[in-house]
Design a protein around this nucleic acid. Structure first.
Lengths: 249, 249
DNA sequence: TTTCATAATTGGTAAGACCAATTTCCGAAT
DNA sequence: ATTCGGAAATTGGTCTTACCAATTATGAAA
């Protein structure tokens, strides 16, 4: 019977997880006792225990000794947490909102060492801008992540990092940024300089504004680039049609 | 020994994980048999099995029936990717910044269905507030996540979700929120109502302000709660000292 | 040496028992 | 009638034993 199937406890765990996400058991509610579950599923208690441990490690349930097993979540956290593919414009809009706030927070807490690092990254971007675009983009990322670090808030740091990771991961964003690069748009030195200046002055509102301004311009550049791209695509399509039309004659 | 300790299988799993990351067992190598492990750790075989299942779910090992348990990784994948433990106050500060912006974005894009859902969640929070705190907290989370969803920006959605997941995951945050619950602080209906009102009016600035106000108040409540907690701890410590002093005479 | 069947090993599961923590509930005291 | 305390029932935690199935090792036969 067990053939090449998955293990018993995995099936039980999946059934229970389904029941939970299906609303059979709601958050805060108690599951049937291990003995009952064992009988219901016609398996032994150890197997039920193994399944419950699996659910517990997925933070779906929480066991309280002597009391029972309680539902704490309706779906596993890892479900699609880090794997979401975020579109380029969504990504930039989110960054404008989130990094704008991060920048405002950073302005009140950044220390001189971090300011110096930002300055160094700025010159790096300036010098690398010409020869190596990849290097310059890396400096760009480190610039933004240093600002996030300056907030001294691991939640903000994680959020910013997540967005940049998503950018790296997303095929759409990668190809788009390649296109933008091809159109000659490079990381904007002056905008980054404005951000650094506001941070130096410990000016939260100014820092936020500078960061939002910067990312707004990036969005605009991207829009323009995709416009060009769209035009190119349309032109090609027309040429295609023309050819077909000509061929059918 | 049984005290308030963690469960046996967790300790065994941790020992094994340590041995693995320590290089005691290298990648591809076979672990001792369940029976041997049971003997060396002086526990029963089911317990060893539970520990191995825990390692398996962390993708540290892979079990092959009839053959043995093999090491596949030297450290859990979630090492510090999404698993960062964010402190309660950091978390709330990050949420104030990020969800504030999310709320402002949502105000311009939220549709009537989502407004209705928010309203439903509000009444749910109100009615469940008295009887079941868990349910009411779940409604709270869904309220905030619905607002994030209303931004129609998967970057913002992912960021907000990440922070709430971090809260669920963090032992610190969990215990702290339990403490706060004990002091009688419940999800604030009126503050949520203010947020909903601003969203209804499609007022970005008002929505942002309402959300920030709400989370600022939560931070204040948490501060107060920890103060009380600290006071209690201090009081107990003094009583302890007094007792010892009296006893030594 | 190669091959193949048998034995030994290993994980998978079942069943039963006992312990400790928790909850429930009923009787006694107020 | 209400409240308080403790016993009993419930529940998860762990151990022990046993047997099955898959895999691997062994060794005898070709």
């Amino acid at each position: 019977m067990p053939a090449e199937s998955q293990r018993l406890y995995e099936r039980i765990a999946q059934k229970l997880a389904n029941d939970i996400s299906r609303g059979q058991y709601k958050i805060g509610q108690r599951l049937p006792s291990e003995r009952e579950l064992a009988q219901t599923f016609s398996v032994s208690r150890p197997t039920v225990r193994e399944a419950i441990i699996a659910l517990e490690l997925d933070r779906l349930v929480e066991v309280r000794v002597g009391s029972g097993v309680y539902v704490t979540n309706t779906e596993p956290p890892g479900g699609k947490a880090g794997a979401t593919d975020i579109g380029p414009f969504e990504l930039l809009e989110a960054r404008r909102s989130i990094e704008g706030e991060a920048c405002a927070l950073a302005a009140t807490r950044i220390d001189d060492a971090q300011l110096a690092e930002l300055n160094a990254l700025l010159t790096e971007m300036r010098t690398e801008n010409e020869k190596d675009v990849m290097l310059s983009e890396d400096a760009d990322r480190r610039f933004h992540e240093t600002i996030a670090a300056a907030t001294q808030n691991s939640g903000m740091i994680a959020a910013v990092k997540m967005l940049w990771d998503a950018r790296t991961r997303s095929p759409q964003s990668r190809s788009l940024s390649a296109k933008v690069r091809a159109t000659g748009v490079k990381p904007r030195i002056d905008e980054h300089t404005a951000i650094l200046k506001a941070l130096r002055q410990r000016d939260p509102e100014g820092a936020r504004a500078a960061m939002r301004e910067h990312l707004t311009r990036v969005i605009d550049a991207l829009l323009k680039a995709t416009e060009v791209q769209e035009l190119e695509r349309a032109r090609q399509q027309i040429a295609e049609q023309r050819k077909r039309y000509a061929a059918s004659q």
